[in-house]
Amino acid sequence: MKEITTEELQEQLKTGAVLHMIDVREDDEVAQGMIPGAIHIPLGELLGRLDEIDQAKSYIMICRSSGRSGRACEFLEDQGYDVTNMVGGMLDWHGEVK
């Protein structure tokens, strides 16, 4: 499984890189703040919302500590998606949130 640190992701965002991010946390967790530009698809809804994820794009998966995003990566990789897990999750995120 590919991984990216919170610091690496923050640097890429600062340089203006176009990134596709999916936050798989629950509603109450994302209400506390999400990385700007991320879309919210709770882990439990991922299977039913695959039509919202373009297989031609690469995605960075985000959750609280990187456990659920890791499971999301495993599932999506099995479906043929190009995904990267943000290790440390939002607990390690020190960048902007919205």
Rank of each mutant, 00 (worst) to 15 (best):
G16R: 01
S58K: 11
S66F: 02
N85M: 10
E74P: 04
R25I: 04
S58L: 05
L47E: 13
Q79D: 11
D51A: 09
Q12G: 04
V83Q: 12
D23A: 03
E11V: 10
R49H: 13
E52D: 09
L76R: 03
E29W: 00
Q10R: 14
D23N: 10
D78P: 00
A31L: 07
E29S: 00
L76A: 07
D92P: 07
C63P: 06
Y59E: 06
D54A: 06
Q79K: 12
D28Q: 14
L47F: 05
K57Q: 12
K57R: 11
M61Q: 12
L46I: 08
D92A: 15
D51Y: 04
R49M: 07
M1W: 08
T6V: 14
P36V: 06
K98A: 15
H40P: 03
A56L: 04
E8W: 03
A17V: 01
P36W: 02
C73H: 11
I39C: 01
P36A: 02
E96T: 11
I4Q: 15
M90W: 14
R25P: 03
L46F: 00
V30W: 03
R25A: 01
G89M: 11
I39H: 00
P36K: 02
I41F: 01
G89Y: 09
Q10S: 14
D92V: 08
H94S: 14
Y81Q: 04
E96V: 08
P42C: 01
S69P: 09
L19H: 03
M21R: 00
D27P: 11
A38R: 02
E96N: 12
A56S: 10
G48M: 11
K14D: 15
D82M: 07
E96L: 11
E26G: 00
Q79M: 12
M1K: 13
K57T: 05
T5Q: 04
K2N: 15
E45V: 00
L47V: 06
E3T: 11
A17N: 08
D28V: 09
D51K: 08
E74D: 14
E74R: 11
M90E: 15
E3I: 07
Q32L: 13
L46H: 00
Y81G: 09
M1Y: 11
E77D: 12
H40R: 02
D23V: 03
K14N: 15
F75A: 06
A72E: 06
E45Y: 00
R25K: 01
M86P: 09
A31G: 09
L43V: 07
G48V: 04
S58N: 13
E74V: 07
